[in-house]
């Protein structure tokens, strides 16, 4: 579980996040949604520690991120997995080496054990025969799968996904959504997904936080979205005719 308490983030004179408080629950797919420039990426970067909050606190299973010392922080980082928008696979490594990387850096496992674990993770994301290929040789959907396999290699407690569906066709996007959702249940992880894909919201959104103008404007489940009277949320979610008709 990740708790965000009264989070503020400013850049020089510009406040990007204002008093954001929420809880991302364990074993659930928690979604952060909002328009471009609403502050959801900044919120995500604060969550994963790439940015430091101006004020407020982030607790990882009651452990305060800002109060942690270097070794504790290092250990916490090893409990995190991250799926980047562009996959962020290491170009110079093969698919298998990419998945083995966290195991090589942080475990004392033998080479054979690392290979076995990496192959297991690749099989889990339904990638069986791409071990020796380089990231440049595989498709966008396959890259996302490899990135997921790499993210779960160390059995993380927290999984962060930044726009996991961007650049994918609807069918592949749905498969990636379902994969993230299933893995969250299987590993009982706290998964936080940054997205503005409404299909993801409806399909896997067990807890949704809507950010608007740097503030938390709404939170609830995908079922509750349909009956919400929040104007900002409705303008965002039901922007297209299709979704508007679906709501009606």
């Amino acid at each position: 579980m990740i708790e965000v308490l009264n989070l503020y983030k400013s850049f020089e004179n510009k406040t990007v996040l204002t008093d954001v408080s929420t809880v991302f629950e364990k074993g659930k797919t928690n979604l952060i949604i909002g328009r471009s420039g609403s502050g959801k990426t900044v919120l995500m970067k604060n969550l994963i520690g790439l940015m430091t909050p101006t004020s407020g606190e982030i607790l990882y299973d009651r452990r305060s991120f800002s109060k942690m010392k270097k070794p504790e922080l290092k250990n916490l980082r090893r409990e995190m997995g991250m799926l980047f928008q562009g996959s962020a696979l290491f170009d110079s490594m093969t698919v298998l080496d990419n998945v083995m990387f966290p195991l090589t850096m942080f475990t004392r496992d033998s080479y054979k054990e690392r290979v076995n674990r990496a192959k297991f993770c690749l099989e889990r994301v339904n990638l069986n025969d791409a071990d020796d290929l380089y990231p440049a040789e595989i498709s966008g959907g396959m890259m996302k799968r490899v990135a997921i396999a790499r993210a779960i290699a160390l059995n993380p407690d927290y999984l962060f996904c930044d726009e996991p569906n961007s650049g994918l066709d609807p069918k592949t996007a749905m498969l990636i959504d379902e994969l993230v959702h299933d893995i969250t249940k299987e590993y009982n992880m706290t998964t936080v997904i940054n997205t503005h894909d409404m299909n993801s919201v409806m399909n896997i959104g067990e807890k949704i936080i809507f950010i608007s103008g740097g503030r938390k404007a709404w939170e609830g489940t995908s079922a509750e979205i349909m009956s919400s009277t929040n104007k900002e949320l409705n303008d965002f979610v039901f922007a297209s005719d299709f979704f508007r008709r679906m709501k009606e």
């Binding site: 520690g49 991250m82 980047f84 962020a88 696979l89 290491f90 170009d91 990387f101 850096m105 942080f106």
Partner: peptide, 17 residues
């Protein structure tokens, strides 16, 4: 530079490397 703009360096940092 390419590793930076394609978030590969961020990926290393998040892993704790």
């Amino acid at each position: 530079g390419t590793m930076r703009v394609t978030e590969q360096i961020d990926a290393l940092e998040i892993m704790g490397v």
